[in-house]
Write a protein that binds this DNA or RNA. Sequence first.
DNA 1: ATACTTAGAGCAAACGTTTACAATAGATAT
DNA 2: ATATCTATTGTAAACGTTTGCTCTAAGTAT
Lengths: 335, 335
Amino acid sequence: MSATIKDIARETGFSTATVSRVLSGKTGFFSSKTAVIVNETAAKLGYKKNMAATELVTQKSNVIAVIVNSTKTNFSDQIISGIQKKADEAEKRVIILYAGDRDERAQKIALSTALERPILGILLLAVDLFPSNLEILTFSNTPFYFISISFKNNKLNYISSNDQEIGYQATKYLITQGHKNIGIAGLNITNSAHTGALRFKGYQKALHEAGILFKPDWLQTGDYSYKSGITALQKYYLKKDVTAVIAASDLVGIGILNECSRLKISVPTELSIITTDGTSLCELVRPQLSSITQDFYRMGYLGTTYLINSVQSNAYTNIVISQRQSVKKFNDFDH
Amino acid sequence: MSATIKDIARETGFSTATVSRVLSGKTGFFSSKTAVIVNETAAKLGYKKNMAATELVTQKSNVIAVIVNSTKTNFSDQIISGIQKKADEAEKRVIILYAGDRDERAQKIALSTALERPILGILLLAVDLFPSNLEILTFSNTPFYFISISFKNNKLNYISSNDQEIGYQATKYLITQGHKNIGIAGLNITNSAHTGALRFKGYQKALHEAGILFKPDWLQTGDYSYKSGITALQKYYLKKDVTAVIAASDLVGIGILNECSRLKISVPTELSIITTDGTSLCELVRPQLSSITQDFYRMGYLGTTYLINSVQSNAYTNIVISQRQSVKKFNDFDH
DNA sequence: ATACTTAGAGCAAACGTTTACAATAGATAT
DNA sequence: ATATCTATTGTAAACGTTTGCTCTAAGTAT
């Protein structure tokens, strides 16, 4: 077992109170001579503060628990970077907990692990909590914020992109490039977190404004996965109707891209693709995928700021269009 | 503040001892009638065990701290899956800490965060600890294991692939495919963790056994990054000498692949590529990258097993050759 | 000389658990 | 009737910290 303040107290002859004050920098309660002695002894004994004890007595904690899906949401890293940055600035610590992949039990374990010890609060990264688990969380009185997920219900705090705007901007961009038959693929529009529904709404709005009549085949729902991209493209291929498609995630985009490659459909010459997310994956594939790029880093940074300052409010982070190589102007004369 | 066993004791009229025994399932110490009353009251009051208090008194913990680099080591997820699996089986909890990217201070913070609270032990995923931090860790008496990194010094416990074997197998595979001028790119051969040095050694051994004389240009060192792949390919391009290259990571492989695409070098027709790692990235790009595939999941699983059972030993996990689309038989007559 | 302040230090309670030990009552064995 | 055992419960100490309160001695103001 590691040395405790009692050991230091015994060794130096001071009381544990004085040792504690020196070690936790409660200046004004001890002479500098005392401080030197205590600190030296602490170093000599290899003293490590026992945070469990501290948190027990102070009833507060400096650790933020971050709960993430183990599913390959490849943007989590960016969010976590933002979280780490802000946490570091505020002298807070962060621990990350994996909550499985839409796994009720795993979610519950992660939640318990967090709630069963003193923490500052919880940040949930793109995790769509099961109702039972959401109840546990709300009932616990621990502050929490959802990141990269929004809710109709404004009772819950979240920091995310404006998903309707994502759908709208993506669609509008393709329209300005001359496209009229525009698919939207890989998204889930029934989800309780309604990310997909909002994007679809924005998509429809843009279509409507441009006087384009939506055709049901253009919507290919999915679960934001690589596989969703593949099956979506296969559907589009049957009709040979759409000239551009909005992918619900970078992985969906790559699924579409690779299936195009298999079917000898040239991107962007025959089909334009714009994805949603804009992580580094977009620049790893050829052609590079154009994207609606979300500011994941900022989501993490802002969410952490809100948590630390107890800001009871929602926020949207900016989105931006990153033009790369997968969208081409559509010109009727070409056909 | 959440309800405590004292609240339950007061409410039910039992002592905290009895409540504690019921709540932590110390069967044989209470009647089933008592158990029912206590459990109901606990549920009613929304009781959550305070692990900090438990860990304080029992002097033990069921949490495993996993320290990872924030750098895009895209295989960490697989390792973590393995860790989670084993931890779950053994009823242990896991918390993940980010240690920045070769950042001494961030490493130290992550380490302190782990060491300052009761934990079972530490798993370090591909993190190459600064000497000062390694000292902190060893001095702490907390058990720890390195995963995906090996050491000359057998004082340190690790679970990894046999890196010399990786170099050897990759090279031998290319030789059996008819290649003689084989590059090896993106690896660091001075690293204290000597992963790169071992791979290079295996590579040389295979070359030697085949009677091939190594040319210094064939070795293009780097830091396992995408960028390393790009610059390596540029070097090879100048000499137009190698017909196949071993990439030190999937990202290096993709860097090489993309630079080939820019320079109109056809893969695998003009250049074969085999990467080391074999994560899902290999199947995301076109052509898909053949790889020496490591069993990251098993590394995590095994490392956790060792940690839990205090096995003081090292282990290698298996590697396997995954043939995809980036290696082609080399035939002198073609040229 | 007296009263008051202050710097530096210690005492002891508190945080929420667990658990060795003690206590009680009823049951069983002799 | 006595001794022994068992099932259930309680008492209290312990884990490592922090901190309100108290104490002492020296310094300052009057």
